[in-house]
Simulated assay, not measured.
Amino acid sequence: MKVTLNRVNDNFHFELKNERGHIVNVDSRPEFGGNDMGPSPMELILMGVAGCSAIDMISILKKQRQEITSFKAEVDGERVQLGEAKPFKDIHVVFYLEGEINPEKAARAAQLSFEKYCSVSKTLEPTATVHYKVVLNGIPLTPDGESNNL
């Protein structure tokens, strides 16, 4: 796996390209000297967590013949000052699924993603804790798939 980076302007706008030719723009916010022409590298990490786990979950649920009509996720990262760097300490993921989906299967798909399959979250494990929850058809689920309507 390989990506290339090319600087686009005199600030922090970069174009990154993978071996298959897909392009992503990366930049920094204006308050940090950028022009806000793309997500920051740290935002890309959160996007990677969302995308990786979504692929896992949808793959698992499709194999179980679950009917997914909508799949969304929100990812929030909390950072901590560590010398000059600010790595993620905690990452919170909420999945919003709709459709004819067995609650136990939805909860298990999320668990398998984060405990076994998602390479992005596994890469972050040494420094960040990933917390997740599933909301199915508007109802929050417990880790075992039970309704968590409080």
Score class of each variant (00 low, 15 high):
Gly145Arg: 09
Phe88Leu: 06
Val120His: 00
Glu115Pro: 02
Pro103Gln: 11
Lys89Trp: 00
Pro41Trp: 08
Phe32Val: 07
Ser121Tyr: 00
Gly77Lys: 01
Asn35Tyr: 06
Arg108Ser: 01
Leu82Thr: 12
Asn102Phe: 05
His22Ser: 13
Val75Ser: 02
Ala73Thr: 12
Asn11Ile: 09
Pro87His: 06
Lys89Thr: 00
Pro143His: 07
His131Gly: 10
Val94Glu: 05
Ala73Gly: 01
Asp36Tyr: 10
Leu136Gly: 03
Thr127Cys: 12
Ala54Ser: 06
Val8Phe: 12
Pro140Phe: 09
Gly48Met: 09
Lys105Ser: 08
Met37Ile: 05
Phe95Lys: 12
Val135Pro: 07
Asn137Pro: 06
Val135Gly: 10
Phe14Lys: 09
Val120Asn: 00
Ala85Ser: 07
Glu146Ile: 06
Val80Trp: 01
His22Thr: 09
Lys133Met: 07
Thr4Phe: 02
Pro30Ile: 14
Ser40Cys: 12
His13Asp: 11
Lys72Ala: 13
Gly34Thr: 01
Gly21Pro: 09
Pro143Lys: 08
Lys17Gln: 13
Ala109His: 08
Glu19Arg: 13
Glu125Ile: 11
Gly145Lys: 10
Ala107Asn: 03
Glu100Met: 10
Val3Leu: 10
Val134Tyr: 09
Pro126Tyr: 09
Leu44Glu: 06
Lys86Trp: 04
Pro30Phe: 15
Ala110Val: 01
His13Leu: 15
Ala85Asn: 13
Val80Ile: 03
Glu115Gln: 07
Leu46Ala: 09
Asn6Phe: 10
Phe95Tyr: 03
Phe14Gly: 10
Met37Lys: 13
Ile45Met: 15
Arg65Ser: 03
Ile101Glu: 00
Met37Glu: 13
Leu141His: 04
Gly99Gln: 10
Ile45Cys: 13
Lys133Leu: 05
Pro39Ala: 15
Gln64Pro: 01
Ile60Leu: 06
Ala73His: 02
Val3Ile: 07
Arg20Gly: 09
Ile58Met: 13
Asn137Tyr: 06
Thr123Gly: 03
Gly83Leu: 04
Leu150Phe: 13
Glu146Tyr: 04
Asn137Trp: 02
Ile23Cys: 11
Glu125Trp: 12
Pro87Arg: 11
Met37Arg: 14
Met37Gln: 14
Ala109Leu: 08
Ile91Phe: 12
